[in-house]
Amino acid sequence: MNATAPLKIYQPEATSAIEMRDFNAWFAEAHILRDIRLSFRENRITCLVGPSGSGKSTLIRSINRINDDVGNYNCSGEIRLSNQNILASGNDVAKLRTRVGMVFQKPCVFPTTIAGNVLFGIRHLQKLSRPEKQTIVEENLKAAALWKEVKHRLQDKASSLSLGQQQRLCIARTLAVKPEIILFDEPTASLDPLSSRAIEDLMLSLKEKYTIVFVSHNIQQARRVADDLAFLCAGKLIEYGSSQQLFSNPTQEKTRKYLNEEFCDC
């Protein structure tokens, strides 16, 4: 292992769902991400790990351009989705976000019913008949492994659910919009271990249909769930590869230290 060895560009065998090319991001003068080159494989779970402030959230939030709405944000390079640069001017950002869904750190349910939350996004995008609404609610609550728990109280306030259930409701709401890719920004950070495991199991079941990118501070969680792993430190991509390879045989000393939960000086 060589601490100064040049980073090999990981060439995944499966088709790439998203490709980042020489991607840089700034908040005002602060250079948050530097020359990121990454390919996220289709129907795989890629986990972004790294210390706080390494740029993981900025990276994941750049993929659906939700950072665009934050003041002083600026970026360069390319993010390619279906071989189109999503950063190109004139792109319909709202449409992009229907293709790239996102689940946030803290569950955020809207002050309406459980069923109303599932339909919240989709009903703004297309007109739905009553039977269509019922089907969408049932299908997506089932996909989010929540149907059995809430099927008799769909008209209850969503805020009456536990935090773990609320997070699964947020996932159901995201699935209802029919995205191709789902971004999870530390989805279990505010949940208890049991609820966290439920979300992990859910992510594993969802990867059959969706490409998943998720940020986690929990190394053990990354080991359990991720197919691929990207280690970021101080805005740079230090190492990227299959989860198995990075945990067993990392090429970078910083990666080894971080994944072994040792002090890592970026």
Binding site: A94, F104, C108, F110, G121, T174, V177
Partner: peptide, 21 residues
Amino acid sequence: PEIYRESARALGLNHWQVVTG
């Protein structure tokens, strides 16, 4: 809270839909 606006935008709602919804 800003997270409500972000959650709505992340579902593909445009600015006006976030305002009305």
